[in-house]
Amino acid sequence: MGIEKKYLVCMLYVCLAVTVLAGVLVNFHEHAHAAFLWQAIPGFSAICGFIGCILIIVVSKALGHHWLQRGEDYYD
């Protein structure tokens, strides 16, 4: 199990690296494609996904814990 997990984690890192590299390469070719300034940044989608996901989790949970989440019998 341990080896398998290590292998999977390794694969994940390889995939991450490959997509970022591929993104940089494509960026050279299709530079005119960018609709916004930030799309010209190589690996913008990667940053967007990583930061976006953390933001969504943290902000949602903060909203939930401080305001929106109530006990299951709240409406009874």
Partner: peptide
Amino acid sequence: SHVIGMSQLLLFTFLA
């Protein structure tokens, strides 16, 4: 660019 952009977005979301 679409395929790579989407792959980056999804993979890094998975990481987070």
